[in-house]
C-alpha cells in the first residue's frame, strides 16, 4: 500500500456497512419495544392496527421497492458508462421519495384530524395498549420518514458529484454507498409495513 493517493473501495464500503449496522440497531430499539408491547397487548395492537390504512402502507411499500430498483440499476448504469440514464434513475428515486413523503403526509394528517396523535384527548380515552401502538407508530414512521429525507438528500448529493464527473464509471464508490443507505431505508420499511399495517386484518 502506498499511502496517500490510493482509494480503498472495500474499506469505504465496509465503513458504510458498519454505519448501516448502527442504523439497524437504532431502529432495533423501536422494534424491541414493539415486540415487548405486542406481547403485552396483543388484542389492543390488533384493534389499533385496524385504524391504519393498508393502501397507504402498501402503496408506499411499492414506491420504496421501486425506488430501490432505480438506485440499484443506476449503479450498473454508471459503471457501464450510461451517465444520463444513471442520473435519470436517481432523479426518479428522489421523485419516489417525494411521493412517499406526500403519501405519509396525507396519512398522518388523516390520523391527526381524527384526533389520533401523541398526547391528544382522543388518545387518552383509548386502551393503554392502543396508546402505545400509536405512539410507537408515530415514532417509528417519523424516524423512518426522517431517514427518507436524509436518503433523498444523499442521493441528490451523489447526483451532483456525478454531474461534475467526480463520481464516474471508474470511481463510483460514493454512489454505491449512497445506494446502500437508500436500500437501508427500504429495508426498514419492509419490516415496518407488516408490523404496523398488516397486524391481522
Amino acid at each position: 500500500m502506498s499511502g496517500h493517493v490510493h482509494k480503498d473501495y472495500t474499506g469505504a464500503k465496509f465503513g458504510m456497512w458498519l454505519f448501516l449496522f448502527t442504523e439497524v440497531l437504532l431502529f432495533g430499539g423501536l422494534f424491541l419495544l414493539y415486540a415487548v408491547y405486542l406481547a403485552r397487548y396483543p388484542q389492543e395492537f390488533i384493534s389499533a392496527g385496524k385504524e391504519l390504512n393498508v393502501w397507504f402502507g402498501g402503496g408506499n411499500t411499492m414506491v420504496l421497492l421501486t425506488s430501490s430498483l432505480f438506485v440499484a440499476i443506476s449503479i450498473t448504469a454508471l459503471r457501464r458508462g450510461a451517465k444520463t440514464l444513471c442520473l435519470r434513475l436517481l432523479g426518479s428515486t428522489i421523485v419516489c421519495a417525494a411521493i412517499f413523503m406526500v403519501n405519509k403526509y396525507f396519512e398522518w394528517s388523516a390520523k391527526i384530524s381524527h384526533g389520533i396523535y401523541p398526547g391528544s384527548d382522543h388518545m387518552k380515552e383509548m386502551q393503554p395498549g392502543e396508546m402505545v401502538f400509536f405512539n410507537l407508530y408515530y415514532l417509528t414512521t417519523g424516524l423512518h420518514g426522517l431517514h427518507v429525507i436524509i436518503g433523498a438528500l444523499v442521493i441528490a448529493w451523489a447526483m451532483i458529484l456525478i454531474k461534475k464527473d467526480r463520481v464516474n464509471a471508474d470511481d463510483w464508490v460514493i454512489l454505491e454507498n449512497a445506494g446502500l443507505y437508500w436500500h437501508l431505508v427500504d429495508l426498514i420499511w419492509i419490516f415496518v409495513f407488516p408490523l404496523y399495517y398488516l397486524i391481522l386484518h
Partner: peptide, 21 residues
C-alpha cells in the same frame, strides 16, 4: 451505542411531544 441513541431520543420525544412509551 445506537441503542442509547434511540433511548435518549425516546426520552426527548416523551418530554417534548408526550409520546408516553
Amino acid at each position: 451505542t445506537p441503542v442509547i441513541g434511540i433511548t435518549v431520543a425516546l426520552l426527548f420525544a416523551e418530554r417534548v411531544i408526550g409520546t408516553g412509551l
